[in-house]
Computed example of a mutant assay.
Amino acid sequence: MIAAALFDQHRMHPAAEQEYTPYSPPPTAPLPEYLADLVVAALIDEVTLTPKPGLVDMRSRGAHRDLSWALMCHSAWALHSTFHAMAVAGQSMADLQRLREHIGFLGRQGEASMMRATGDINSHRGAIWALGLLVTAAAQDCNALAPAAVAARAGVLARIPDPFSPVLTGNKGQRACHEYRVGGARAQAQAGFPHVIEIALPCLERSRARGDKVNDARLNALLAVIAELDDTCILSRGGTAALASVQAGAQRVLAAGGAASPHGRSVLRQYEEELLVLHVSPGGAADLLAATLFLDQLRTDFVH
C-alpha cells in the first residue's frame, strides 16, 4: 500500500532537507481506495516536508516531545481504513443528515484507532476532522473535483449538526476556542476551508509559477497559512502573545523572499529558533497544509 511505500522512500534520510518527489497514487483504482490513498499520501508528505518551524519533520520533533516523523507516518497509515470508509459513505449515501452522522461515527472510530496506534498520543485528531470532510465531499461527486467545489461540499457537511457528537470533548483545541473566542477547526471547515482555498493554494501556485522547488513552494504555502490563522494549537500552548509572534514571524519569512531565497531561508532558521523558545507548534496550519496537498493533487489528477 502507498503509506508503506512512502515510509520506505523517506526513512533512509531522517535528517534530510533535500528535494523529494511527492507520491501520487494513480487515479485508476476505485474512487474510495484512490481517495484514501491520496489522503494518507498528503499526511505523509506534510510531515515529511522539511524544514518546518515548530513542527515534526524529517530532522526533529519540533516543539513536540511525544511525536516523531516515524510515529506520524504510522498514524497516517493507521487512518487509511477510516478515510476509505468515509469515501465509500460519500459515494453511496445521498441523505446528507445520515451521511453527516455516519462520517462523525467513523471519525470517532478513527480517532480511537489513531490512539491505539500511537499509544494514546494525539497525532492527527485535527486531520481526521478536516480531511475526513474533504475525502467524503470528494467522493460525493467525481465530476466536480476542483478544490473550491470539494471544499464547498465539505463546508455543507460541516454545517450539519451531528446529534451524536459530544458537546464537550475536553480537547485543547476546543478549550482554546472557548477561552480565546476563535472559531478553530470547526469554523474553518464550516466556512469551506477559506485558508486552503484563498491562501494556501494560491500561494502554492504563485511559488510554482516562479520556479520554486516542491519543498519551497509547500513551505511558502504553510507559512502563508500560519501568518493568517488563529491556530488553536498555538493559542492552547502560548496564548494570544505567542500567536501574534508566530504570525508575525511567518510574515517576516515571506517578506524576506520565502523559503526559496537565501535571505528568506536565513530568516526561516531564525524563526524556527523563536518557535522552539516559545515551545509552540502551528499544528492547525499543518492540518490545513495536508488538506491543501490533498486538494492540489486531486486537481492535478482530475481537473483539466
Rank of each mutant, 00 (worst) to 15 (best):
P202D: 09
A242H: 01
S261L: 12
S236N: 02
A256I: 02
R237I: 04
L243I: 09
E205A: 14
D212L: 11
A217K: 02
R265V: 10
R237M: 08
N215L: 15
L254T: 05
P262W: 12
G239E: 01
S207E: 14
S207K: 09
R269F: 15
A259F: 08
A209Q: 14
L219V: 03
A221Y: 04
R218A: 11
A217S: 13
R218N: 13
D216W: 10
L222E: 06
E205Y: 15
L243E: 02
G211W: 05
V253N: 02
T240I: 15
A227P: 03
T232F: 09
A209K: 08
E272Y: 12
I234H: 04
D212I: 02
A256R: 00
R210H: 10
R265F: 11
S207N: 12
G249F: 01
A250T: 07
P202C: 08
T232L: 06
G249Y: 03
L254N: 01
A217R: 01
A217G: 07
Q270S: 10
A224Y: 04
I234F: 11
G258Q: 01
K213I: 10
N215T: 12
A255Q: 12
L219S: 03
A259R: 03
T232N: 08
V214G: 14
S266Q: 13
G264L: 03
I226Y: 04
G249R: 02
S236V: 00
L254P: 01
R206F: 13
P262N: 11
R269W: 13
